[in-house]
Nucleic acid binder design. Sequence first.
DNA 1: TTGACCGGTAGGACATTTCCTACCTATTGT
DNA 2: ACAATAGGTAGGAAATGTCCTACCGGTCAA
Lengths: 121, 121
Amino acid sequence: MFAAVASPTRRRLLGLLLENGPKPVQELAEHFDMRRPSLSEHLKVLKDAGLVVERRAGRQRLYSLRPEPLREMSAWLTPYERFWRERLSSLRDLLDAEDDDLPDTEDDDGLSSTEDDDRDV
Amino acid sequence: MFAAVASPTRRRLLGLLLENGPKPVQELAEHFDMRRPSLSEHLKVLKDAGLVVERRAGRQRLYSLRPEPLREMSAWLTPYERFWRERLSSLRDLLDAEDDDLPDTEDDDGLSSTEDDDRDV
DNA sequence: TTGACCGGTAGGACATTTCCTACCTATTGT
DNA sequence: ACAATAGGTAGGAAATGTCCTACCGGTCAA
């Protein structure tokens, strides 16, 4: 599922379905500089990932968005969100960079290989 | 960046850095059934995506998590989150399935608000 | 029924990813 | 200086991904 969303083409596809609702393949293909069978393959990947469902309507297939699998991504993200909120990471990056600017032997710190200490900001 | 996170190996790597803090390559490699150079390549991908930073410490390189780029993923997710919360999609899936099985029973009409924008251009 | 249309499948070309084994440089301890 | 250690780089093999052109079956309209 992460792999399905990793493709810019497929993210765009999901975006179109999100904004415009269910659409047949042809109409989706108009938005891309790509032949229709390739789009069909991308849609198959999305379907296998459970991100779209296909519904037959006459001679066309309406594809529509099914965002549930994205909850998994949202859940995966959560602890990282917490991390970047707790640590104010951009500031921490700055401190790390300055730390990197002191290449001399820092014998006062000991350079413990097992743990990095949580230092506040 | 989406591509960087698409790999299970790299997600695991990020998870290790999240839980255990900065680590040298060797110690990370112990958790994988993979040779060290391959891990190095995965770390390079993560570094190019801005998801980790490398800090030289003697003869080892400490890799640490930099979660900021994940905000982009979180932002991308937002409208879909809204979508799945608004539409109670799992219920909708059930109704769609029954609708597909019994095409003549249209006793529900509360969820058909999106069907009108499916029109040719 | 015949043709036009929608869209999936086959399979081939090409690029990218992912793993490996060698090999290299930089650092550290003796 | 020398050997050992940490880890990146080269380049090749195999697997996957992404595009294409054909082609095929299903549906609608005359």
